[in-house]
Design a protein around this nucleic acid. Sequence first.
DNA 1: CGCAACATACCAACTAGTTTGTATGTCAAA
DNA 2: TTTGACATACAAACTAGTTGGTATGTTGCG
Lengths: 220, 220
Amino acid sequence: MLRAREKKLRLRDPERTRKRLLRAAFRTVYRSGFQSASVDAILAATNVTKGALYHHFASKEDLGYAIVDEIVAKFPHDRWLLPLERSNDNDPIDALIGIVKAIPARPRDVKGGCPLVNLAQEMSPLDEQFRKRLERIFHSWQEGIAEALRRGQHQGTVRCDLVPEESASFLIAMVEGYEVLAKNAQDPKVWNVGIKSIVGWLNSLRTPGNRKRGRSHRRV
Amino acid sequence: MLRAREKKLRLRDPERTRKRLLRAAFRTVYRSGFQSASVDAILAATNVTKGALYHHFASKEDLGYAIVDEIVAKFPHDRWLLPLERSNDNDPIDALIGIVKAIPARPRDVKGGCPLVNLAQEMSPLDEQFRKRLERIFHSWQEGIAEALRRGQHQGTVRCDLVPEESASFLIAMVEGYEVLAKNAQDPKVWNVGIKSIVGWLNSLRTPGNRKRGRSHRRV
DNA sequence: CGCAACATACCAACTAGTTTGTATGTCAAA
DNA sequence: TTTGACATACAAACTAGTTGGTATGTTGCG
């Protein structure tokens, strides 16, 4: 193992090369879709050659699978699962509202849409390997939310008459649905209105006694 | 002008040829996406030649625009706008619930997803002409629902504290979001659970006095 | 009506460029 | 020196779109 200082001077650093390929591939695929993202375009976005790419990945599909596993999977994990775990003893509804409000609404993000949905929408009907990997991500996302809701039910902050798994997938559907609408409109305003509706729905999951309903009317 | 009987025997029937191209193109694009649907594949699905295609359509994009205008636009129109208009004096919530429940849940439809979302998701960030056409469809869809809700507010069957446009786009987001989830799962069960949640939400739009809440517990 | 003049609808082959993937060679590091 | 990590050049298949030509349908005119 080389020290970091030496690592910088290395001409050949396979891990780094692989990472760069992955990142560039993700960006290109995010823009054009997987099928239309040409290998040449990915290579042009790096200064890596085709030989290097096919040294690290057996095929374009293989590269795509790695994108899903190593990059796309991070989004729900970092943005949803980690925050939910960290707010372990707080009201999960508050946590979820915070998470929803924290989803980036920059034009760049709105226009590109959700990478997970983009890939699922394009590849799931065409390639079972893609589909399975994407489904694993959706499932752990849903399970993380459901778990938080269950916690809230035990705490008494979340209504007991709802089925956590169903509410979780409903929330995911809302978020993804609005991201699709905002992406089509290419307009962050659409997304911001969506947040408002989603937050309203989330508040309706509180136990009737517990309604702190954040009616602070800060601008949305 | 030739009579219908003679028309069948005609060797050249430009309208028919155009329609056949459109239908085949729609099916191919529905399966593979627009960019990956090759012109050759579309032609192989008909017995029309490339010359004929480029006689009727200036380019592949042009063919795509025609698909949106003449085929994709029909889905929200036929499945949402027409039923809403027809149920003019009934409770719009009942009408909407009926519409949502009537969305096909056959494996074929679930696996292919919503043609409107498929195209929007793929093409809206890449081609402004696609985007505008798709946005028109989304907008008239939303406007149709909003109008029905407004009607309900005047009738007294729909809560007055909600903003019709926002509730309309919320409903669309839910429907599309769940279609994305179901498409990724490639499983109609996911969609059926979604319907349940959406119907529950729709019932929550009724004016408190008016809750007939279809709690018939028929299996979902 | 009958026929020439024209316009539309279509066909098969082709072009120029792009696609993923490979075969072979070279150079750095252990 | 051997082996992994690349680079270069290339191939075979596929891409959208064009070409020149032909068969059919329509229409104006005698």
